[in-house]
């Protein structure tokens, strides 16, 4: 047996080095994912930023650098202004509506045992159902003449409302559908937050003399649920910024741009008029909002929300 053992292992001739851990294996296992990340996420993201500085139109032979021209055009464009304010308004209405109803539903359902599973299933149903199909059902129910909603409105002695064709109503109608669709999702997030509250906190509160449901809520539930609520608000906002399906199929942004939203503007400029450069600039604006919210979630909230 050789006593000359004071060599580093990697120095042994003909011995494959295993010193760098699992480098080759890792390349095989993670390589495809890395390639696809570059191809479908990082690459396109960089391209959007670059395209927004050009006059590229799909199918055109050339493209020119135009600097901030797209952005200048965009911010002076009435359609874009309308689109941006509509989107912000949509978010500002949908988020509180959906979060508060979701929270209320979660608290009420968890407050007692009766029909708990039934309610949870019903409230969650719209989250599962194809939004496009349900949008069409809503359109049918909101039909100005024979829609069930207007028939009920008329039965109550009120005058009919043209839910999807009236400029001053249409955005609120879309908000309503948005809330209807998303409150069940928020509800299950709140339920998860509720179940992660330690039971002995309620018992301790009871021992301390918190006897009414309101006391328990103020002393235990709300402080424990507060961070979850912030988290739910942010992800609902992110999802609301992405409103598209209902607009595309029900209103096409109309009437008179009253329901024009950012993603619909991006879609029509990019995929109907093929003005890729301009649509990229719209995308960048959309991205700024979503990334700001995501960053808020990742860097601030994820540290404070603890799910057991």
């Amino acid at each position: 047996m050789s006593r000359d053992a004071s060599q580093p292992v990697t120095g042994v001739a003909g011995v494959p080095s295993r010193r760098h851990g699992h480098r080759a294996v890792a390349a095989v296992l993670a390589g495809p994912a890395l390639v696809l990340i570059v191809l479908f996420l990082i690459g396109p993201l960089a391209c959007v930023a670059l395209l927004s500085l050009t006059d590229y139109q799909l199918g055109a032979a050339t493209l020119n650098y135009v600097g901030g021209k797209n952005y200048a055009e965009m911010f002076s464009d009435r359609v874009f202004q309308k689109s941006l304010t509509n989107t912000l308004l949509y978010v500002a209405i949908t988020v509180p509506g959906s979060v508060l109803l979701g929270l209320g539903a979660a608290l009420l359902i968890e407050a007692d045992r009766g029909l708990r599973t039934f309610y949870r299933a019903i409230y969650f149903l719209p989250v599962m159902a194809t939004l496009i199909a349900m949008s069409i059902v809503w359109e049918f129910m909101l039909h100005p003449q024979f829609g069930i909603v207007n028939q009920l409105v008329k039965a109550l002695g009120l005058s009919r409302i043209d839910w999807l064709q009236n400029q001053s109503v249409v955005l609120f109608t879309l908000c309503g559908i948005g809330i209807w669709q998303s409150l069940g999702f928020n509800m299950v997030l709140f339920m998860a937050g509720l179940t992660s509250i330690p039971k002995d906190l309620y018992e301790a509160a009871a021992v301390d003399g918190a006897n009414s449901a309101i006391d328990r809520f103020r002393l235990v539930t709300w402080p424990m649920l507060g961070p979850v609520t912030l988290f739910v608000v942010v992800i609902t906002a992110i999802r609301s910024f992405q409103v598209f399906d209902t607009v595309q199929v029900l209103t096409k942004g109309g009437p008179n741009k009253a329901s024009e939203v950012l993603l619909y503007t991006m879609y029509s400029e990019g995929f109907e008029f093929f003005r890729s450069g301009y649509a990229s600039a719209v995308t960048v604006v959309f991205l700024v909002f979503v990334l700001a919210l995501s960053a808020l979630k990742v860097f601030v909230l994820d540290k404070r929300v603890h799910y057991a």
Binding site: A30, L45, S276, A279
Partner: peptide
């Protein structure tokens, strides 16, 4: 690599649509 994955988590699907389409 992990940092890249976390960064990409922030990208909404719609943001990459135009270049991917092209």
């Amino acid at each position: 690599f992990l940092g890249l994955v976390l960064l990409c988590l922030l990208i909404p699907v719609h943001a990459t649509a135009i270049p991917t389409y092209i």
